[in-house]
Every structure is written in C-alpha cells, then in structure tokens.
C-alpha cells in the first residue's frame, strides 16, 4: 500500500470506521512508515484538540428572546455598545461627509468593548457613507495586547478600499492576548480629509482559555 492511499484512510481509521482487511493493511504500512506514522499522530492530536474545544454558551435569556423576536418577525439588532458588555460587537457610525480636515482633533468620546482573553471575537465596524468614495485609506492601530486573527504581532494595519453609498461593514476578527487591552484607533482618509475613531478594548481574563491544552 502506498502512502497516498494510506493518507485517504487515516480519518476513517481514527473514527474507527475502517473495516477489515483494509484496517490491518493501513496499520501495517504505518508501522513501517515514519511519514504516515507522523501524519497519524498529528491527525489524532488535531482530532482530540478539536473535540476538546470549548463552546461558549449563548447569552442569558437567548432561547426566550430568539423565539419572541422570531414571532415578531424581528431580526436581532446589533446594539451600540455601552459600558463593558461582554458582547464583542461594536458598531461605529462614521458619516464621511463630516470628515475632519487634516490635523483634526482626536475623538472625544470612546466606546468600550470587552474581549475574552485568548478567544477570538468579532468587532464590527460600520461606516456610513453619503455617496460612493474611491480609494479610501483605512488604518487600524491596535493595542499591544490585541491582534487581528492571522496577523500575529502586527499592531498597525492599513489598506485601501472603495466605499459604497450607504452602510459598509467591516467584521474584524480580534483576539486578545494577556494584558489589559487599550485603544483601537480606526482612521479613514480620503484625499485631504481624515476621520478618526477610537474604541477601548478591555480584556476579560475570567473566561480565558488555558494557554496549554492537556493532550
């Protein structure tokens, strides 16, 4: 049996769904093949890790609320966050027609959102534009303890995009490392105009996942 064939059966082997005599043939190959033995070890570890992933329970009153809103035909409205609600959802309204001139003042009021430490959460930024805008530069400055998922260790991200008239939404997958959080600053630039918003990210360590998984 070739490695490529064995590879297609490892999932069934781990799920105990491989019948004889195939199972014996696969095991015999693995016994003499370091590469396939390593693949088996990795896949087993991955499976165990996946099965041990925690499930964050729904928010209190979810069942009653969701049925009540369904009967009323209401979609859940994403709230503007106030205080330190644990919901890692935030909507920032930006009316681009009111952009600041260069050198404009920093934001006066700062909203807050909390993230559970070591656990990805989504923060949604919504930008409301009065008309189509091309080549808008959006820059995010992140606190040192917060990262965009997949961009480890990078605390400044910038990209150019076009905004459509109406609501433009950015769902930002964030993960908080150890630390206290800090300010996330979002800056939009279009031509000579600039608008800046800040959000305070608080890190909740109480529900933090262990940094090591017992395997």
């Amino acid at each position: 049996m070739e490695c490529s064939q064995v590879n297609t059966h490892i999932d069934e082997l781990l799920a105990d769904a491989l019948g004889e005599p195939l199972r014996s043939a696969v095991l015999l190959h693995i016994e003499h093949c370091d590469h396939c033995a390593q693949t088996l070890r990795q896949d087993r570890t991955l499976r165990e890790l996946l099965q041990g992933l925690p499930l964050v329970p729904p928010s209190p009153g979810f069942h009653a609320r969701v049925l009540r809103q369904a009967s009323a035909g209401q979609r859940r409205s994403r709230p503007w966050l106030t205080g330190l609600a644990l919901a890692a959802t935030l909507v920032l309204g930006v009316v681009l027609g009111w952009m600041l001139a260069p050198g404009g003042k920093p934001p006066v009021s700062v909203q807050a959102v909390a993230l559970l430490a070591q656990q990805p959460g989504s923060v949604r930024l919504a930008f409301e534009s009065g008309h189509d805008l091309r080549d808008v530069k959006l820059t995010l400055h992140l606190p040192t303890s917060v990262e965009v998922v997949g961009y480890p260790g990078q605390h400044e991200l910038t990209w150019r995009t076009d905004l459509q008239r109406g609501r433009n939404e950015l769902s930002l997958p964030l993960v908080a490392r150890d630390g206290e959080g800090g300010l996330l600053v979002a800056q939009l630039e279009h031509g000579a105009q600039r608008k800046q918003f800040a959000v305070r990210i608080d890190v909740d360590q109480t529900g933090a996942l262990p940094s090591k998984n017992p395997i």
Binding site: D34, A37, Q38, R41, Q42, T45, L46, L49, L50, G52, L53, P54, Q118, Q119, P120, V149, G150, V175, L209, P210, S211, K212, N213, I215
Partner: peptide, 18 residues
C-alpha cells in the same frame, strides 16, 4: 517525526480557535 511533546508546545486550544 515529531514527538507529541513538540506538538503540545504549539498546538493549543487558543491557537486552534484562531
């Protein structure tokens, strides 16, 4: 071949969630 201890070092729940 990678010893399971090495996997344990890198493969954590937090990283898997990400």
């Amino acid at each position: 071949p990678e010893p399971s201890a090495a996997l344990e070092r890198h493969w954590t729940q937090a990283r898997l969630l990400e």
